[in-house]
Design a binder for these strands. Structure first.
Length: 806
RNA sequence: GCGAAAGUGGCGGAACUGGUAGACGCGCUAGACUCAAAAUCUAGUAUUCUUUGAAUGUGUGGGUUCGAUUCCCAUCUUUCGCACCA
């Protein structure tokens, strides 16, 4: 019987003490391979999801090392931000202490999972040596004009008492506490992410990643091509007082405009307030809508609200007709130009708005508009005919669209533009536990970035770190820290008291692993060049859209300022599925029925835990946790242990030649694709064969142990040491012999009319004609073709014969 | 509403570019060992029937094909993501 407690500890200590998995910069002979597992969130213990997520990356790393690669497989902790801070507040421990304990704990647990990290490269986002460079990157953003502070209406979580990015408040809900998010006007630091939209889309196309994950990212970026159309704003008497423009993807409906709608917070309103006769009503509506929470806006979306701007009108630029302008919260200030042309007959939102406010409608494309709008989806699909559209009337809509585009462009009133849903990244939080901004506010010089030699700007230690009810940052209470001198003029200045969001530190960390102790740069350029892009990046899918887009954004920026050698942070991104609890929900430390991976390891051992969790299902699938079936794994491990008593002979035997070569091929391919479940199945099959035959040769055992090592590193290392007297990790990954994959004989399947009627074992070199002949000699086949006319005979070489009869 | 993915035995799940559906494991049934139980080992295990054979069978209904879990059309269900994006 295999004693896992002793043996697993022995190897874990050995690997750690001997730095067995150290990655070597600029290795003279071995090619590099970079495997990355996402940051641990330092807010508690490792959970079952980590067992599922880390092991495939570990297995891939271990296989690659045996294949002769110089593998970089590092780990670190994301310790800044809300998760750690909220957890610290709950326990009453200062975040700084909470985090250093937490780091130690998860690293210790990682060793118990048998993970082959390079421990010398461990980093932590809340370590000043690390966040010095997070601050440095921000400083560079600022210096390049890509970070700006602006007053804006933003998402605010009253529970977490902080501003949230759009990414963190999807669906009007706080990503952390799941409370309702409200809209508040605040000073916000933005990073100019929107201008990188096109580059991020290119990154998405280049990376190897599941198509559905790519689609999520494309949707988030939300590229859309359309026409920007300019129009005049006039007063009651038709005198031009201003001009503006709208964005539309449906220019074909331009003759059907009966009103315009502006976002309630649009600048134009203040600008034209002298012309607006009902300015008080307008102000009241603004107030009512601007501060409505996202959730309210969404839940009310069927019930349109709005307010007419009395006294000003818009001119339809193609017809010259004068139409009213409304404001309504269904128009977003942040998208397009913040103004839309409304064509109620061909846009359902406009239709509802027009009905509510009794605005006339003009139908410009054929179809039934008596109860609802005929929208783009339908009229494009049917290619309906135009109507009421001057020279375009009667034309099919697809053709008309092209012609109208030509017309507005040639008239100089329209141009082709591309719009993106993605917004600039709101980048500050009113929280204590984050990277301080490396800037000061000076009365003389304005906002000034700290010089590089003043970095890191360390976060002052305080026990008064609870968020303030008024939404100001806890740092604002530390006068001695806030008041400082301007690095430019030497005069008095004040520090930014907000901190960076928890995504900051994780937006560049894979670069730091290449050179984690560098004090002069975020990482040495030559080392970055050596390690290059991450070959395989693994982690959960939960925050993948945001995290990967942020990563693309920062890497692009760093590339443009010459700090890194490539635009692509990752070559391949794999998203692991979740471990579900018995209610079908994500298993986490917060769910009461969550089972800790440490508990499984205690009971069954690390190797069994590693195999079991991956035998439950595929890497990308969500799989419910269960102890059911774990006996199958323990039996397997015990059978593996018993193999050492079954050794007979040296070289690969004739009997197992095909099996062992097949196993090498299967396991090599499966591990490359992180398909651990099917490779485990093939190991079991192999062991069953060995058990049946009653022997294994020494060489077969050596190959078997090396192949299984990435999945079950402890037992295989121990057995290798016992049988071969050395360390398995110094051996080499076996290579299969293509010529040995084919057996001498195979089972030929014989079908009649597509149904299996017989099987016969034949030699591999049987010719097609012989296959047909042999097929017809099978009794059961004879009875099915007797007295019938053979229409066709199909032969699939080395597989089957199908006889078609009538 | 829009978008994406997925529906296979009692269960978790396999099945390469269309070619033996149910690999591997759990569970279950029977047997061996045992005073007995557990553990272990051996055999069996999709359903139905007139059981050396046949029919049916991968959510449902159609289609393409000699042949479909795989491709096409329609439809239902579930999960996830987005959500007034003009």
């Amino acid at each position: 019987m295999y004693n896992f407690k002793e043996i697993e500890k022995k190897w874990q200590d050995k690997w750690f003490n001997e730095k067995s998995f150290k990655a070597v910069d600029f290795h003279p002979t071995k090619p590099k391979y970079y495997v990355l597992y996402e940051f641990y969130n330092i807010s508690g213990n490792l959970h079952m999801g980590h067992l599922k997520g880390t092991v495939p990356a570990d297995a891939l790393s271990r296989m690659k090392r045996l294949q002769g690669y110089n593998v970089l497989f590092p780990i670190g902790g994301d310790a800044f931000g809300l998760p750690a801070e909220n957890a610290a507040m709950k326990t009453g421990i200062n975040p700084e202490d909470f985090v250093s304990d937490g780091m130690e704990r998860v690293m210790d647990q990682s060793r118990k999972l048998g993970l082959s990290f390079d421990w010398d490269r461990t980093i932590c986002t809340s370590d000043p040596k690390y966040y010095k460079w997070t601050q440095w990157i921000f400083k560079r953003f600022f210096e390049e004009g890509k970070a700006y502070k602006q007053k804006g209406v933003v998402n605010f979580c009253p529970n977490c008492k902080t501003v949230l990015s759009n990414e963190d408040s999807q669906g009007g809900e706080c990503d952390r506490c799941h409370g309702k998010v409200v809209q508040e006007e605040r000073w916000v630091w933005f990073l100019k992410m929107k201008e990188y939209s096109e580059k991020l889309l290119e990154n998405v196309e280049r990376i190897t990643m599941n198509e559905n994950l790519k689609e999520l990212q494309r949707n988030w970026i939300g590229r859309s091509e359309g026409i920007e159309l300019s129009f005049d704003i006039v007063d009651e008497d038709g005198n031009k007082i201003d001009a503006s423009s709208i964005f539309t993807t449906c220019i074909e409906t331009v003759y059907g405009i009966t009103f315009f709608v502006m976002a309630p917070e649009h600048d134009m309103i203040d600008k034209l307030k002298d012309y607006i006769k009902n300015y008080d009503d307008v102000k009241a509506y603004q107030k009512e809508t601007t501060y409505r929470s996202e959730l309210d806006r969404i839940s009310d979306q069927k019930d349109k609200t709005g307010c007419k701007l009395d006294g000003i009108y818009a001119i339809n630029p193609v017809t010259g007709s004068k139409v009213p302008i409304y404001i309504s919260d269904f128009v977003l200030a942040s998208y397009g130009t913040g103004i839309v042309m409304a064509v109620p007959t061909h846009d359902q939102r406009d239709y509802e708005f027009a009905q509510k406010f009794n605005i006339p409608m003009i139908q410009v494309i054929e179809g039934d508009v008596s109860t609802c709008a005929v929208e783009k989806y339908d009229y494009i699909r049917l290619n309906s005919k135009m109507m009421n559209s001057e020279e375009f009337t009667g034309m099919p809509v697809k053709e008309a669209k092209e012609k109208i585009i030509e017309k507005v462009i040639s008239l100089g009133i329209g141009k082709k533009v591309v719009n993106y849903k993605m917004q600039d990244w709101s980048f500050n939080r009113q929280r204590y536990w984050g990277e301080p901004f490396p800037v000061v506010f000076c009365d003389n010089c304005g906002t000034v970035a700290l010089p590089e030699e003043d970095l890191p700007l360390t976060l002052p230690h305080t026990d008064d770190y609870m968020p303030n009810d008024n939404g100001s940052s806890p740092l604002s209470k530390i006068d001695s820290w806030v008041n400082c001198t301007c690095p430019k003029c030497g005069g008095p200045a004040k520090r930014e008291t907000d901190t960076m969001p928890n995504w900051a530190g994780s937006s560049w960390y894979w670069l730091r692993y290449c050179d984690p102790h560098n004090e002069n740069a975020l990482a040495d350029f030559e080392k970055l060049k050596y390690w290059g892009s991450v070959d395989c990046y693994t982690g959960g899918t939960e925050h993948i859209t945001r995290h990967v887009l942020y990563a693309f954004f920062w890497q692009n920026f760093l590339y443009e300022i010459g700090a890194v050698p490539t635009r692509d942070p990752f070559i391949r991104k794999m998203g692991s599925g979740l471990i579900l609890d018995d209610t079908g929900k994500k298993m986490s430390k917060s769910s009461t029925n969550g089972v800790s991976p440490m508990e499984v390891i205690d009971k069954y051992g690390t190797d069994v835990a590693r195999l079991h969790v991956h035998f439950l299902g595929g890497y990308e699938d969500n799989t419910p946790w269960t102890y059911d079936g774990i006996t199958g794994i323990t039996n397997f491990i015990n059978k593996v242990w018993d193999l050492q008593d079954m050794i007979k002979g040296e070289e690969v035997s004739k009997e197992h030649e095909v099996e062992i070569n097949k196993l090498i091929k299967k396991v090599s391919e499966d591990l490359e694709n992180l398909k651990l479940n099917t490779s485990i199945a093939s190991f079991m099959s192999f062991v069953n064969t060995i058990k049946k035959d009653g022997f294994i040769t020494k060489e077969e055992l050596r190959i078997f142990l090396i192949l299984l090592n990435p999945l079950a590193p402890h037992i295989t290392s121990e057995m290798y040491e016992i049988v071969f007297g050395g360390n398995l990790i110094d051996d080499k990954w076996p290579i299969y012999d293509e010529s040995k994959l084919v057996e001498d004989t195979y089972e030929m399947v014989v079908q009649v009319n597509g149904k299996v009627r017989g099987k016969i074992t034949v030699s591999t070199d049987t010719s097609d004609d012989d296959m047909k002949k042999l097929a017809k000699e099978i009794d059961n086949v004879k009875t099915h073709i007797e007295g019938k006319e053979i229409v066709k005979e199909i032969v699939v070489p080395k597989k089957l014969v199908n006889i078609v009869v009538k």
